[in-house]
Design a protein around this nucleic acid. Sequence first.
DNA 1: TAGACAGAGTGAACATCATTCACAGTTCGG
DNA 2: CCGAACTGTGAATGATGTTCACTCTGTCTA
Lengths: 241, 241
Amino acid sequence: MVPTTWRERRRAEAVAEIKDVARRLLVAGGPSAISLRAISREMGMTTSALYRYFASLDALVAALRGELFEELGRVTQSARDEAPTDDPILRVLAMARAFRQWGLEHRQEFGLMLGPPVAGVAGPDQEPSAPDDAVACVGVAFLGEFAELWRRGTLVIPAVDPIEGYLVPSLDMYVAERADLEPLVVFAFLSAWTKLYGIIAMEIFGHMTWAVTDTEEFFEAELAEFARQLAGETNNVPGPG
Amino acid sequence: MVPTTWRERRRAEAVAEIKDVARRLLVAGGPSAISLRAISREMGMTTSALYRYFASLDALVAALRGELFEELGRVTQSARDEAPTDDPILRVLAMARAFRQWGLEHRQEFGLMLGPPVAGVAGPDQEPSAPDDAVACVGVAFLGEFAELWRRGTLVIPAVDPIEGYLVPSLDMYVAERADLEPLVVFAFLSAWTKLYGIIAMEIFGHMTWAVTDTEEFFEAELAEFARQLAGETNNVPGPG
DNA sequence: TAGACAGAGTGAACATCATTCACAGTTCGG
DNA sequence: CCGAACTGTGAATGATGTTCACTCTGTCTA
């Protein structure tokens, strides 16, 4: 499995360098700035030589996208592992912060990964409901903490009407030891997951500047309220006065 | 203001047709499929002639984007106006449903509008915190209902720690009669707004298929829980059992 | 009303891009 | 050690945005 022959090692290096240059171009000028010609120029190669490593530009971008998901997954999970083991809520918060932080530091990458699907990269020809969808990589880590929270009996969630039927049935497959998740837990996770995505994506895509000046403070306020809800400590406030 | 001379009328028609064709191309093949050459071909014109109407391809796309925001604004607000005037919560729900529905029926447009900023269309050179940001057009309608809800004293919101400081100060400018919005109300709106964006964008961008089969049911469940929270009727459920 | 002027369209040109192909050099395995 | 697979080359094709010098034609003014 590990490259042994010279050619294989050389090839792996080339693939890695191509993806590195592609990422640099992405960061510098957005997805449309990733061009085989620019890559070949920077690497001192012919453009056609790149086709020995990737079937097309789209294939390259798809590979890069996959690698970025791995990176984001590593980052969030290592943030989780630095949080105290016995406090799932703190672990969730740590992951959420790491998620946002990485996104802010890698806006273009974030857009490529979690923006609208790019034409040839994740088109409708791909199987739509692939169970190993790249997005799952990072989402599942959150799900795991919700499962742990539920296992301890400290998870407080709103009772939702007809919860059955619309969740992917084998979702607890991802969770350690097949937790046999209550659908309500999955709903609680999804609710938090979509909300997290909303805040972060909106900020990174620049759709929040018209309403919020200090997005970090807003994010922390949302996080605090979220933690309060998880602990069942919501103290509501009635109308004006 | 209204075009009177023949040339002006003719010009307005041409501009409209160009944007129409551009939109058709967008729908058919994504943003990268919008090309001046394809437009000119379809219109039986020379490509260079298009430069009499738009300074560049990016300018065309930007104009199209603006028009799409107007359309989405009209759709959501007309959905609101069909809901009972005396029930702000129902009005918010109607707008949320219309928002999602329009997005699902116009995925490419939605991506262009609310996805990551496209290179030349909404680049960093544009003024970042423009108060008339296009996203505001649709968001403000939601804010208005929250203001109304608050005015009636029926809005129940969580108490959030240090709310001052990170909100755009002149946000109540948008609200009818300058409501002098309590920051807490703005926070409640933003919380709902980001959440709504999260659910809808995630679904439209295809980032939810790995976890949810029937996204419509999930959306309705979230909506119901949201309405319950707004009315202060959350009935929580403790851990496993 | 006649002429000046701005608007609208043309066709050629240049630079960029992805992709393919026949060809040649290099490395590996039997 | 020799054939086969791998890696790279250079030319070619056809797509793209953008510019420029031109014509032609409405429109407005003197």
